[in-house]
Design a protein around this nucleic acid. Structure first.
Length: 468
DNA sequence: AGCACA
């Protein structure tokens, strides 16, 4: 007695239930929207959204069976289909009689997120890229990655559930911005739920796991060669010998790049201990020393190929130096040891205090060294909360994603600005759910705000004054 | 576009 139409029988044979099964929902659909949908027909006592692999299904449960029947009947004969956010929603009786909420994992907010990376090239997404993406919302403590039936997944541990929620809300369903991926890679979508974990166990720094709270954690044997250098990146690719010291060369240097500008840029990833600038092959190069290789690696991967100034100016090319500890003889405008707070400047020249950035070609785009950021020989510049670091308004024309520690962008001729851009701490740079994420222009840098620490004034371990 | 706590 099967259907003559050839259509699956269940389409017409679902027995009534207080529970309705909805599909074709937008994944953003909230519980509240589900309640609103059912409200005209009765009392919605339970809902469950984001059901199914695509999170585009849901259930609503009425207090009374007749209410469910009323809703099904109405839309069965209505010319207007049920809709959520403009999408037609398909309704039917559920094959269950009530919604059971096993709120074991995915709905309970925790400080650890379970991230599924979708896409043909998902496995090529390095742990460092994930770190960069999630650091925009706060300090990432640990990351582990693994392969499950669900695909390539990662657990990302934040300090608290609030931070994790911000990251989840902003990133769930989004793609990793393409400029963080290599050119050949296709889109990689993030699907995020809460994990039941609260503290991940990371034994080694490796391709698969990282503990950012413990830079001294041993590197996994599998990632070390005979010389004690890590040979394999988190993406499994061969690496050049790593170092805590980076060699940066600056291409297309239309505008002068000062020691202080470099210090600002590289400090976004951790404490910069020393910088030495020099001329080579007609260009400017700099050595930047971090306390550890991990920090240098993050900085290198984040900054490589990006420009200090908008418009393709002062493009950075970064490699690992063979140095491990720079010898800074004097503190001057080309070299500085930030670990020494009381060293006298060379010849104690007051001139650098009054020195304006000068353009190597044309006029400078702006002077980014304002009064409060003037380097002082005895007091390396420290962004002080009291001097406008937090208060600096974000101009409308600037993208929200402007890295906080960067000198302000500007085209030549733009009115000089005297302080670095600051993204408001409370607002993640990804915008609100539902808005278009990643509106960053090409060539702009995307680095975690506040070095991954949401509050520059409290407990940021990268603050210079902590280790001066 | 087709049933959840895998």
């Amino acid at each position: 007695m099967s259907s003559v139409s050839g259509q699956p029988q269940f389409r017409y044979t679902q027995p009534p239930s207080k529970v309705l099964h909805l599909r074709n929902l937008p994944w953003e659909c909230t519980e509240e929207e589900l309640v609103d949908l059912g409200k005209p027909f009765g009392n919605v006592i339970r809902t469950k959204s984001n059901v199914g692999a695509n999170k585009n299904q849901a259930f609503i449960e009425f207090a009374d069976l007749n209410q469910a029947i009323a809703m099904i009947s109405y839309y069965a004969s209505s010319s207007e289909p049920a809709q959520v956010r403009g999408k037609t929603v398909y309704l039917q009786y559920s094959n269950r009689q009530e919604i059971v909420n096993s709120q074991t994992t995915a709905d309970v907010a925790g400080n650890v997120l379970l991230v599924t990376i979708e896409g043909a090239d998902a496995r090529l997404v390095s742990i460092d890229v994930l770190h960069l993406v999630f650091s925009a919302f706060g300090f990432v403590h640990k990351i582990t990655t693994f392969e499950k039936t669900a695909g390539y997944q990662a657990l990302v541990q934040f300090s608290d559930a609030e931070t994790a929620s911000c990251a989840k809300n902003a990133l769930d369903g989004r793609c990793i911005p393409s400029y963080l991926l290599s050119d050949q890679m296709g889109p990689c979508t993030l699907r995020i739920t809460y994990s039941a974990h609260t503290d991940l166990s990371v034994k080694f720094q490796s391709h698969r796991s990282r503990d950012y709270t413990n830079p001294y954690l041993p590197v996994a044997p599998s990632a070390i060669d005979g010389s004690g250098q890590a040979t394999v990146g988190s993406d499994g690719k061969k690496l050049e010998p790593q170092s805590n010291v980076l060699l940066a060369s600056i291409e297309n240097m239309q505008y002068v790049v000062t020691l202080d500008a470099l210090h600002m840029v590289f400090s976004a990833f951790g404490p910069v201990q020393k910088i030495a600038m020099f001329d080579k092959n007609g260009g400017v190069q700099a050595l930047i020393q971090y306390p550890d290789t991990q920090t240098a690696t993050v900085a290198k991967e984040a900054l490589e190929g990006h420009c200090i100034y908008d418009g393709g100016f002062c493009k950075l090319h970064i490699s690992y130096s063979r140095h491990t500890d720079l010898s800074i003889k004097v503190n001057n405008d080309r070299s500085r040891d930030y670990t020494l707070s009381n060293i006298a400047a060379s010849n104690s020249q007051p001139s650098i205090l009054g020195q304006q950035p000068s353009a190597t070609v044309g006029a400078p785009p702006h002077q980014y060294v304002g009064a409060q950021y003037m380097p002082s020989p005895s007091q390396p510049m420290v962004p002080q909360t009291t001097t406008g670091w937090v208060a600096a308004p974000v101009p409308q024309s600037m993208p929200m994603q402007v890295p906080s520690s960067m000198p302000p962008y500007g085209q030549p001729g733009v009115v000089p600005r005297s302080m670095p851009m600051q993204v408001p701490n409370s607002m993640p740079p990804y915008g609100q759910p539902g808005s278009v994420p990643y509106q960053m222009g090409p060539g702009m840098m995307h680095v975690p705000n506040q070095n991954g620490f949401p509050n520059p004034g409290a407990g940021n371990p990268y603050r210079l004054d902590r280790y001066q």
